[in-house]
Design a binder for these strands. Sequence first.
DNA 1: GAATATACGGGACGGCCATCCCGCTTGTCT
DNA 2: AGACAAGCGGGATGGCCGTCCCGTATATTC
Lengths: 184, 184
Amino acid sequence: MSRPLRADAQRNRARVLQVAAETFAKEGLSVPVHEIARRAGVGTGTVSRHFPTKESLFEAVLLERMAHLVRTASDLAGGEEPGEAFFAFFSLMVEEGAANKGLVDALAGAGYDFNAAATDHAYDVMGSWGRLLQRGQEAGALRADADIADVKALLAGCLDRERDALDPAARARMLAIVRRGLES
Amino acid sequence: MSRPLRADAQRNRARVLQVAAETFAKEGLSVPVHEIARRAGVGTGTVSRHFPTKESLFEAVLLERMAHLVRTASDLAGGEEPGEAFFAFFSLMVEEGAANKGLVDALAGAGYDFNAAATDHAYDVMGSWGRLLQRGQEAGALRADADIADVKALLAGCLDRERDALDPAARARMLAIVRRGLES
DNA sequence: GAATATACGGGACGGCCATCCCGCTTGTCT
DNA sequence: AGACAAGCGGGATGGCCGTCCCGTATATTC
């Protein structure tokens, strides 16, 4: 097995991760790895040693954030009325996306295969989402014919990358439209 | 003023345009210009003389297709009940997108600024769409608060680039959802 | 059918970027 | 403190692609 990372390496790794998270969130997936290294104050080699590919770096970033969101989904699934729980999570994802351009890029399939990642990994968005959707459908609150891919596509729509300012009013309208569309 | 193109030049231009249309439709905007030249059986220089940039090539392709769609929109605006006319056009665009990956890329903002093109040019999608939307709203058939950007975003959602097979069933579901969401 | 402008082909160029590598530095362990 | 492995920086490399250029070929015109 591998020994624990040296102290400076741990610091650097954490710093890169943090800077990458901020940068991807603000500027999307198209930002060069060099730039992230520069902002983190490390060499590009340091980034690529910890994260061999750009994809793996983004994945690490996404993982942290998603783990949190998925936990929230579970909490929602426990308590509230099924339909409300579903829309609460959907709305949460929209808010997240509004603040995270990288996530939007991933959802839109620009430079990252979200589907593969979402099904393969520890956090599974699709899974937790699926449960919320299914519960809502069984309770008769949501259209019975909708599936997770539909939901994901609608989410991507709410986060349209071309919308200049993702202003709150537009988000609210989109949410209202989707909500009405998905209610049974 | 410029003289008429030489006969071979006209042929080549037309051929490039046609091949580009097919290629962009089938494989999206990420296909290299070299590849289009190769398939058209011409040199890359020939392509870039007729269309100085890749963007201008795609624009020329898009223009032809859009002109047709916009004409259809006008016809629809003339006849049917306002709400139906709007959804007929929306559905038409979804079908078009299902068969045209390039259009989907443009709508998703991947490598082309659709908004700029759509407002700047002769064909104006936004304009003709706006009229259909407005008529529907005035007739009380559509939500009064929706705007064109919302509609465009919903369309982009219906055409989610990550959906492997844009199967007809999924398209129908998405249309049904959006329809219910937009009806007043 | 010769003269001339027009267009062609496709190689060259330059920019961008992810990834790899290696000489040097710095933490770690005794 | 000294030795050694672990990690660092950032330049080098290679691939991809859009665009430009120019020597050659061909349509047009007289």
